[in-house]
Design a protein around this nucleic acid. Structure first.
Length: 694
DNA sequence: GCCTAAGTGCTTTTT
DNA sequence: GCACTTAGGC
């Protein structure tokens, strides 16, 4: 096989096929090229059969990209290579071994929203006030525990605070509920395979024998469960090749631990290490800027990323007046690019999903086609969620969560009372809600589901969707409504059918099971579309692993990026900096860094100083476009507080947490108060703690 | 049981 | 600004 187009180290990385191999690959150093070439090398040199190779990536996007590349190198044999995300790999294990773990064949996967719904319901059952104990926090706590392989019984040993105690109670119920409804959450997809392997060494052995060659991309982002899973499967042959860069570790909120990559040599004896330091992607200027920023992090291995690409043009820094002005600026710059660039060469990155909206509005106004990657907006629409809930229930009647969602959709007079009775009966008889239906208006509902179920065997997926929309009355209801709103909903449902159609065209005859599994892991509509000639909008997290000729990073303000929740601890701040590093190193030729003096945040106007990351870049690499030097922003926290007392604007008060402040506005019982604060960040707080008149 | 208005809290990031 | 919850009238 011809490895001529690789450099020395890349070549070595491909040729070392036996034993543990650690590839420390800086941004843009061609690691995907190395990985895909390595897979091709293994197969073409008959070292491994396609089915002996397991390649794991982090995002669906990355998996798809790798698969496409391998297919173009190897042709159809490549279809037998398991290239997937950790989670979809987990699904494939569960589909073969659900029995050993006591699940039914038609298990369902809950996304994080579903998990939250389950937890809210448990809180209700346990009479716990969700305002006092945030369901989200409980969910996150449970999820991170699971990712550390801590189940509820182990968790009991770590209970210290009252919150822990509540979490523990909910944790137990949550486990019960999921098992009872034959459902798995995302974390189960990692920990159940581990449990399976621990309990059944012979099954583990079969996986070890099957996957003799293992490749893991973005190893710095693995969490404990993923780390253990990989370790187990690779234990026999130890042909494990991991690629990563601790400077790009950005998933610690999900339990990822970049020390996994720093410790790889200790974990796997006789590891060979290869450094890929030459960058093929970016101009020298962009690379210099990235290096300037990342060197402010203390916890990192020293890498020296270099390139022999051209110096390139300076990075453009623009400070806009407000968020509208910001997106208008980006749009006008994009318009300048259109003549000489493909739209697919342009990307806009932001820190939080909410920031896409202004950008979308501006692009819509100017008729510039775009796509928002990783937006679950479509699947989060009420009508789509309802439809999916119906489909899930048709597939798995034990799915109580879905049943509760749609039992009264469209409205048929089934309210709280009915559901309470139903729940009670279900608990007593230890059966699902669906099973416990035996009369009333609910029976009508059950009959409809039964009818669709019966018909489903002889229908294609798209036909099944159509039948569901008709039999349930969802379609009729919307057609009768005849409002703008209902029209949009109908359109969305049509769009859903076009997704199932595309799906069928791509995959042939597809079962409801396969479809539901797929959309539970890939709930991003863009993955199913082929609209390639568009500008790409996405969060920096989704941008990892990708590259674009022209990159805009917006919202570079203290409090947004670095995000306000990440500014307190050094460790979080370093992760924000790594995130910024990822953003910058996506750009091949041109980079814009943009922020705004003022913006509407949570409905309040706020003024944030420019992100510290900008000042970490040497001035010589920046073309600054701001019509005044950065003013020293007045340092204050703004708090809004409920109060019955009479206050007037301008009055001084004392707050028991923030100290002295001044009333800025009075709106009914809502007060907005300014407090001096060293960070210069506005913090919105409402409805708690007391203030006193001075 | 359904509808509406008022109230409340909230946004990191992904599978 | 928005989505979600809750209370109260029908």
């Amino acid at each position: 096989m011809n490895l001529e187009n690789l450099n020395e180290n890349q070549k070595k990385a491909v040729e070392i096929t036996e034993g543990p191999l650690l590839i420390l690959a800086g941004a843009g150093s061609g690691k995907t090229k190395v990985l895909t070439t390595k897979i091709a090398y293994l197969i073409m040199n008959n070292i491994a059969q396609p089915e002996n190779i397991l390649a794991i990536t982090f995002t669906n996007k990355a998996a798809k990209e790798m698969k496409d590349r391998v297919i173009s190198m190897l042709g159809s044999v490549a279809y037998n290579i398991q290239i997937s995300t950790f989670h979809s790999f987990g699904v494939s294990i569960m589909r073969s071994h659900y029995k050993e773990l006591g699940y039914d064949k038609n298990f369902m996967i809950l996304d994080s929203d579903d998990s939250l719904t389950v937890i809210k319901r448990i809180l209700k059952d346990l009479n716990i006030d969700p305002k006092q104990y945030s369901p989200k926090m409980i969910r996150n706590r449970i999820s991170s525990s699971k990712n550390e392989l801590i189940d509820s019984s182990i968790f009991s040993k770590y209970v210290k605070t009252e919150f822990d105690e509540i979490t523990h109670k909910v944790f137990i119920k949550y486990e019960e509920k999921l098992k009872q409804t034959n459902s798995l959450d995302f974390d189960d997809l990692l920990i159940l395979p581990i449990q399976l392997f621990r309990q059944n060494p012979e099954i583990l052995l079969s996986y070890q024998e099957k996957f003799k060659y293992i490749l893991i991309d973005e190893y710095q982002d693995t969490n404990e469960a993923q780390y253990i899973l990989v370790k187990m499967i690779s234990a026999k042959y130890k042909n494990i090749c991991v690629v990563g860069d601790e400077s790009q570790s950005i998933y610690s909120f999900r339990g990822s631990n970049y020390r996994n990559i720093l410790n790889f040599e200790k974990d796997y004896k006789n590891t060979q290490v290869i450094l890929l330091e030459k960058n093929y992607r970016s101009t020298q200027t962009i690379l210099n800027a990235a290096n300037d920023v990342i060197k402010n992090n203390t916890e990192r291995k020293d890498k020296n990323l270099w390139t022999d690409n051209v110096v390139g043009s300076n990075i453009k820094y623009h400070r806009a007046m407000n968020e509208k002005d910001e997106s208008d600026y980006v749009t006008s710059e994009i318009k300048k690019l259109i003549n000489t660039n493909k739209l697919s060469d342009i990307a806009v990155f932001y820190r939080t999903n909410a920031q896409s909206r202004n950008m979308e509005e501006a692009l819509l106004r100017e008729n510039i086609p775009y796509k928002v990657v990783g937006s679950f907006y479509f699947y989060n629409r009420q009508e789509i969620k309802d439809l999916i809930a119906y489909l899930k229930l048709i597939y798995n009647e034990k799915d109580d969560v879905s049943l509760l969602r749609v039992i009264n959709v469209p409205k048929k007079g089934i309210g709280l009372k009915t559901i309470e009775n139903l729940s009670l009966r279900a608990v007593i008889n230890n059966e699902s809600l669906y099973q416990s239906i035996n009369g009333g208006k609910e029976l009508e509902f059950k009959k409809i589901i039964e009818e669709i179920k019966k018909a489903s065997d002889s229908l294609s997926l798209t036909e099944l969707v159509e039948l569901t929309l008709e039999k349930t009355g969802m379609k009729q209801e919307l057609q009768n409504e005849k409002t703008l709103e209902s029209d949009i909903r109908l359109e969305n449902l049509e769009e859903f059918k076009s997704i199932t159609k595309t799906f069928e065209e791509k995959n042939g005859i597809i079962s409801l099971e396969e479809f539901l599994l797929e959309i539970s892991l890939v709930s991003d509509i863009e993955e199913y579309k082929n609209n390639t000639e568009v500008v790409t909008l996405m969060t920096i997290h989704s941008a990892k692993g990708l590259e674009f000729k022209n990159v805009f990073v917006i919202g570079l303000e203290e409090g947004i990026f670095p995000h306000i929740n990440c500014m307190d601890s050094k460790c979080d701040l370093e992760e924000e900096r790594r995130l910024f590093y990822v953003a910058v190193t996506r750009a091949k030729e041109n980079l814009w860094l943009i922020n705004s003096r003022k913006r509407l945040l949570f409905g309040n106007e706020s003024a944030n100083p420019a992100s510290r990351f900008i000042s970490e870049i040497k001035d010589e690499y920046l073309d600054k476009d701001e019509f005044e030097t950065n003013p020293i922003i007045q340092k204050r926290i703004i708090g809004t507080i409920n109060s019955k007392e009479e206050y007037t604007v301008g009055e001084s008060i004392i707050h028991n947490e923030f100290g002295k402040g001044i009333i800025i506005s009075v709106d009914k019982s809502l007060l907005t108060i300014a407090f001096p604060h060293p960070n210069g960040i506005k913090k919105i707080m409402r409805g708690h703690s007391s203030i006193k008149k001075v």
